[in-house]
Simulated assay, not measured.
Amino acid sequence: MRFTSKAIVSASLAVASIMAHAGNPVFPGWYADPEAQIFEHQYWIYPTTSERYADQTYFDAFSSPDLVHWTRHAHVLDAAHVAWAKKAMWAPALVAKDGKFYFFFGANDIQNDKDLGGIGVAVADRPQGPYRDLLGKPLIGAFHNGAQPIDQFVFKDSDGAYYIIYGGWGHANIARLKDDFSGIANLPDGSQFKEITPQNYVEGPCMFKRNGKYYLMWSEGGWTGPDYSVAYAMADSPLGPFERIGKILQQDPAIATGAGHHSVFHVEKDDTWYIVYHRRPIGDTAANHRVVSIDRMAFDARGHILPVKITNEGVTAHPLP
């Protein structure tokens, strides 16, 4: 078989792309609390812009066809389009539903039920926005079961129900969302907010379902310190109970510290899993100096998550179909 020079060059580029490593961090800039989603045959990461609370009033997003080459989309959501949000916008959660994209976010770092703020939701026609406030007020604007309304994650169950899992101050709640995301629906027992706090929970919950089991993951330790880390539990229902199994992501003092507040990519075609998280450069103790990284995540024969090795190389290219 005879190959043209053009074909050889194309094949060489394809091989180079497959073999390339992303490198950690995967894109420049101070970012944290990354939300990982696959939309329209692209990987998307929506992080917190890691600035002072007063300046943390917008979100950028990043897209990639292969986990290696990333494009920045600036200001996909801005406080200018959320009348009640004034500071400390963080920890996005994204879902696609009925041709629209919904962006859940925390704002204002409220300290009690008299403060205006909490968890909001915005909507757009495209993954890159621009997103606009959906409700004109917080979706969850008060404390329930002691949980500060921050760090939301939205999980779609296999029966089509959407749940929001959230909470700071050491408490995790789960609630079922109304189908149009305009409010909170009742759970089977008639309540709206069920506490599912596992041992050592601090913040940053994440949920997924695998082989019939529900996995709840969360961050432990202090977000400004080197002991920030991720642990997990498993249950037969999204409502728990969740018993802590162990820690799977933590610092490696030779590579980075403060590894936590994560989400995951799952590529269904080959059942590949990645953990997307933030960490701190070695020796950098500034509170908001956090960067986004990606490493592989795997399971053992029992379905338990194996400890993640954090790396500087990151992951190899994995183009989506």
Rank of each mutant, 00 (worst) to 15 (best):
A11I: 06
L13N: 13
A14E: 12
A20F: 07
H21I: 02
N24D: 08
W30N: 14
Q37S: 14
H41D: 15
T48M: 11
D55P: 06
F62D: 00
D66A: 10
H81R: 10
W84L: 05
W90T: 08
A91I: 12
A96D: 03
F104P: 03
F104S: 05
A107E: 08
D109F: 12
I110D: 04
Q111I: 10
D113R: 05
I119G: 09
V123M: 03
P127N: 07
P130L: 09
P130K: 11
Y131R: 04
L134C: 10
L135P: 11
H144Q: 11
N145P: 11
G146M: 15
G146V: 14
P149D: 13
F153A: 12
V154T: 10
V154C: 02
S158W: 01
D159E: 12
I174D: 13
A175N: 05
R176A: 07
G183A: 05
G183P: 02
N186W: 01
Q192R: 15
Y201P: 10
V202D: 10
N211T: 08
K213A: 15
K213S: 15
E220T: 13
G222L: 14
T224Y: 13
Y228N: 09
Y232V: 09
D236N: 15
P238Q: 11
P238V: 13
P241K: 09
F242Y: 15
D252T: 00
P253F: 01
G258R: 01
V276L: 11
H278I: 08
I282N: 03
N288G: 06
V291K: 00
I294P: 03
R296T: 14
R296Q: 10
A298F: 03
V308P: 00
V308S: 00
V315R: 03
P321K: 06
